[in-house]
Measured scan of single mutants.
Amino acid sequence: KHCVKCNKAITSGGITYQDQPWHADCFVCVTCSKKLAGQRFTAVEDQYYCVDCYKN
């Protein structure tokens, strides 16, 4: 599998969101770069925000 963000191979520790593979380090808030894996977040038009950034 290849990460949908960076297009590099996922060798271990990847996550899946909406049936797409991601590196955990690539699945981050677009505003603050906080890792979103296992966290609550909001998706708006294929942009992902942590709860704090989305509220602001």
Rank of each mutant, 00 (worst) to 15 (best):
K1G: 02
H2M: 15
C3F: 01
V4T: 03
V4L: 08
V4A: 05
K5D: 03
C6M: 03
C6Y: 03
C6F: 02
C6A: 04
C6S: 04
N7K: 07
N7W: 15
N7G: 14
N7F: 08
N7M: 15
N7D: 04
A9T: 08
A9N: 15
A9W: 10
A9Y: 06
I10V: 06
I10L: 09
I10A: 03
T11F: 03
T11G: 12
S12C: 03
S12N: 04
S12K: 11
S12M: 14
S12Q: 10
S12G: 10
G13S: 09
G13N: 11
G14S: 10
G14K: 12
G14V: 11
I15T: 13
I15M: 14
I15K: 05
T16H: 02
T16G: 09
Y17V: 14
Y17I: 12
Y17E: 10
D19Y: 12
D19N: 11
Q20Y: 06
Q20D: 04
P21D: 08
P21F: 09
P21Y: 14
P21H: 05
W22I: 05
W22C: 08
H23T: 00
H23Y: 00
A24W: 05
A24G: 10
D25L: 08
D25K: 05
C26H: 02
C26F: 01
C26W: 01
F27Y: 12
V28Q: 14
V30F: 11
V30S: 12
V30Y: 10
T31D: 09
T31G: 10
T31N: 15
C32T: 00
C32Q: 01
S33T: 10
S33E: 13
S33W: 06
K34V: 07
K35A: 13
K35H: 12
L36M: 14
L36Y: 01
L36E: 08
L36K: 02
A37W: 13
A37P: 10
A37R: 07
G38H: 06
G38L: 07
Q39V: 10
Q39T: 10
R40G: 11
F41M: 13
F41V: 13
T42V: 07
T42C: 07
T42S: 11
T42M: 12
T42G: 15
A43Y: 12
V44F: 15
E45G: 10
E45D: 15
E45H: 13
D46I: 06
D46H: 05
D46C: 07
D46F: 08
Q47R: 10
Y48V: 12
Y48R: 08
Y49V: 12
C50P: 01
C50F: 00
C50I: 02
C50N: 01
V51T: 12
V51C: 15
V51K: 15
V51N: 14
D52L: 05
D52V: 08
Y54W: 11
Y54R: 09
Y54I: 01
Y54Q: 09
Y54F: 08
K55S: 05
N56I: 14
